[in-house]
């Protein structure tokens, strides 16, 4: 019981406070600025050349205000907003009217989840293994070579790297498609042909994420292993004649992994905001692309929906990590 009272409850309160704070910020930002989405929509309709009678215009304004949840004072809107959120309803998209934000996200989310979960898992694994080895064998030539490569890749701006990959492998040598998540007209089924098609399309975006993410993981893991390696208990184990395999596996990797597990949880949480630039560059039909179009159209509800999902995703990832941390690090106990 002490665990629940002394740790779990305060932690849960903090969790809900952060979510509340984040979502409240998201709610107020658009309302603090002079732009009126309803008038913007009307302007757009006018720009398309449709003429409206004054009476019809008022009706439309009223309808839109109601539909967008912009009725009444801020306080009423705020209560209303939460009432809908709790039911998991993000409202309607301003510009892909009358599509609901929930439906739009539901279509895009699997693409992003598939790409980013795979890429994150691969880059985390590769980065940690190579980083761990390079950190242990610092003096070896291949270790120094890998370090030099990571030193150059790490600061590369992502879009530049993605463009280079796209240019090389889709324009110069046409091994991979330029855009899209699957071939046009391909019907989603569980057949090998379709899966192969999806994999082929997601190779370049995946590769760009794996290489850049891998370089970061490599560097952090290398530094961690170097630091653990310099600890006196490792020296003691060496002098005591413990076999090298055991030292590396049980003493060094085990301790160096801990911060990396935190890092994995954080990057898994980030997935929900989508890999915006990846998806723009490679024309991949996920959340990032949805967000990009929402930005271009000023589709506020859609952006809010994605942001809220992302806030909840990250905070939940961190909460789960905190609660399961004792499994990875037996020194941490919530008693």
């Amino acid at each position: 019981m002490t665990f629940v009272k002394r740790y779990l409850i305060p932690r849960l309160i903090q969790y809900f406070l952060v979510i509340w704070l984040g979502i409240t910020v998201v709610f107020f930002i658009p309302r603090l600025t002079p732009n009126d989405p309803v008038m913007k929509m009307i302007d757009q309709m006018r720009a398309r050349g449709s003429t409206l009678e004054p009476g019809a215009m008022d009706d439309i304004i009223e309808d839109l205000t109601q539909m967008y949840g912009l009725e009444g004072s801020w306080g009423e809107q705020y209560v209303d907003f939460w009432a809908r959120l709790v039911q998991g309803d993000f409202g309607v998209s301003f510009f892909q009217f009358p599509a609901r934000v929930n439906d739009l996200i539901a279509v895009a989310l699997p693409w992003t989840l598939g790409l980013l979960l795979t890429a994150t898992a691969i880059s985390w694994t590769i980065g940690n293994i190579t980083g761990g080895l390079a950190g242990y064998y610092t003096r070896k030539r291949w270790s120094k070579a890998l370090d030099a490569v990571a030193m150059v890749i790490r600061p590369l701006p992502y879009y530049v790297f993605a463009f280079i990959l796209l240019l090389l492998f889709a324009y110069v040598v046409r091994w991979f498609p330029i855009t899209g998540g699957a071939s046009l007209g391909a019907i989603p089924t569980f057949s090998w042909d379709y899966i192969k098609d999806v994999l082929w399309h997601s190779f370049l975006p995946g590769l760009s994420l794996v290489v850049l993410g891998g370089a970061v993981n490599f560097q952090i893991m290398k530094l961690l292993v170097q630091n653990v390696n310099a600890e006196s208990y490792v020296q003691y184990a060496k002098l005591g004649g413990v076999t090298e395999d055991r030292i590396v596996g049980k003493y060094i990797i085990r301790n160096a992994m801990l911060p990396q597990i935190t890092g994995l949880a954080l990057s898994l949480g980030q997935i929900f905001s989508g890999a915006l630039i990846t998806e723009i560059v490679f024309g991949y039909p996920g959340l990032g692309m949805l967000l990009f179009r929402a930005i271009a159209n000023g589709d506020y509800n859609l952006i809010m929906g994605i942001t809220i999902l992302s806030i909840v995703g990250i905070t939940t990832a961190i909460l789960i990590l905190d609660l399961t941390y004792p499994l990875f690090d037996p020194r941490v106990r919530y008693t």
Partner: peptide
């Protein structure tokens, strides 16, 4: 608490909203 909230909130999306507005 304020600092940690800023770390957790997807800042990029907040910037996008602010920049749009």
């Amino acid at each position: 608490f304020i600092g940690d909230s800023l770390l957790v909130i997807p800042l990029f999306l907040i910037f996008v909203m602010l920049a749009m507005m």
